[in-house]
Amino acid sequence: MFMAIANSNTLNLERVLTTLKSPAGITISASIIAAVLGAIDNGFYVIVNAIVTGGMWALVAMGLALVFGVMNVVSFVHGEFFMIGGLTAYFTFTPFSDYLMGNPNPLFEAVLPILAMVASVAAGVVVGILCELIVFRPLRNRTREQWVMNSFVITLGLSTFIVNSSQFILGTDFRGIVSYWNYPTLSFFDVYVSFDRFFVFILAMLILSAFWLFMRSSKFGRAIRAVSQDETGARMVGININGIQTLTLALSSALAALAGACLLFMYPAYPTVGLGPLYNSWFIVILAGMGNVAGAAVGAFIVALLQVLTTVYFGEGWEYTVPAACIILVLIIRPSGIFGSEVRGILNQ
């Protein structure tokens, strides 16, 4: 849709109007208007907050959309990947951070948080591959009947297993950090943003673009899209379905783990920390349209804005209630989500 506008050299007014009148156009324009009004009323920080958190939710939600689109798995274990990412970052970061207290080293201080994030991405990849090899592949080889329901229940079980293992091994302590970098706060348009948040936002944007490029133009990104559009067709052109499923789960859990690491200063890691991100990403995926990865990236910013505005006008306790109410509305008016579902057939099961 946006491509259509970008491609035409002469901006066709009629085309712009139809775009604006589509559900996606209406939602996006309404969000922009809401953001502007909120910013006028409360200050620019509304927009800055929505964009910064939206970037991170986009990473989590895209992974969820991908897993649904490619593997047809309604995943409820996605939040646990977030938790594992947070824990890995914590255990990589804090020991060295304590060491740095006694032996200051500016270069190492600057690099250490990035190392922690890389470690959590690696942990995400490993956990994703393990889940595929130990849980999903045996089930897939056994039977594809009732796959959506079976795999959904299995993700619930996996989630319970990981949460309780974490509680059993590490206890229920909150493991968080105050900040990754002790750099001075930055200010944009009179809004103060900590360096951590700024960095996390830039990183999210970089990963989003890299991911988009990967899915558009790389051989394996295309193969992932091919499997989500027609699995039999993908097999017919020589794509190894099992390999693509593994790649997909590894990618999506790595994205969630990275988000968990990046947001460690906002969401300290504890066994059930994944619940919030899980709900959030489900809000986003349902709002955008099941399995629609690009839609999930845009939807993340809309849901983040919704939450920021809710917190401002209704109070912190309503953070999940208002988006959930909006999701119910969306499902009543447009069951396939505002950007439409890219998954065919699976909903007919």
Binding site: R225, A226, Q229, T232, G233, M236, R344
Partner: peptide, 27 residues
């Protein structure tokens, strides 16, 4: 499995076609 057979040099054009509907002709 089907993907290995394709790699061996058999191309199957199914009745349902199994095209990638969301991709362009070139893709």
């Amino acid at each position: 499995p089907g993907d290995k057979i394709c790699r061996m040099g058999i191309s199957y054009i199914s009745e349902e076609l199994n095209l990638f509907a969301g991709m362009t002709v070139q893709e």
